[in-house]
Design a protein around this nucleic acid. Structure first.
Lengths: 113, 113
DNA sequence: CATTTGTGTAACTTCAAAGTTACATATATG
DNA sequence: CATATATGTAACTTTGAAGTTACACAAATG
């Protein structure tokens, strides 16, 4: 893989990684516990975990030889802001339309050319 | 490319495609008008547009030989729901903590072991 | 009608993501 | 201490995403 750098958008592009995040919303889990739920090999999961960590979605809690993965709220911030931008865009567009209709109520009446 | 299928998560994983979406938030734009803003070739942009369309982020408005790209609100729904799921998760977690603190106000006091 | 313009796509190349197996290492356990 | 367990990682393979160039074609324009 040689993951140079993963931003949050790339990190969640992979279905397995999204699946892992969902699992961790239930509870923190060890790498092996996560790997058990998948058909792919344990090292493959290990790499996915690494990507999620680099992208800021999870932190670790070492417990002896086990490493527990824990969801990290801040990892979702970039995505949330991105979505919010477009959300605001739609809202603004709607309010502009409403203003327009308020001033020109006749626009609402369908005109055939 | 031979894009088999692109879900919305994969669609926004590419920086150029996110850039295109931002551009379209300003106004609808023809394929060429979009391509002009990028260093990559026009066919490359054409493919990105195709992906964004397949993923539901944009629609087209044909105008003679020009094809205008228009942002489509529904394209963002899947992402929004995904983010909302985790948002709710954090909120619920916070409210549970608050409930706990309300019943056991002494937990808040730092205890050294 | 000939030419220019806007776009789509096929064929190809390159590169990195995602998976694998094999091995290393640290901790836990009998 | 020997073994089992949990994990990381190097080396390698395969696949598909992203880019390119070349070409096709329909619509606009002189």
């Amino acid at each position: 893989m040689t993951a140079l750098q993963f931003d949050s958008f790339q990190a969640i592009a992979d279905p397995s990684r999204r699946e892992i995040l969902l699992m961790l919303a239930g509870d923190k889990k060890s790498i092996n516990a996560i790997a058990e739920q998948f058909d792919i090999s344990r090292p493959a999961i290990s790499k996915h975990i690494k990507v999620l960590h680099q992208a800021g979605f999870i932190t670790f809690e070492e417990k002896g030889r086990e490493r527990y993965c824990i969801l990290r709220q801040e990892g979702f911030d970039e995505l949330k802001e991105w979505i919010n931008f477009f959300d605001d865009f739609w809202k603004e567009r709607l309010s502009k339309l409403e203003q327009l209709l308020e001033k020109n109520p006749d626009i609402a009446k369908k005109k055939n050319k």
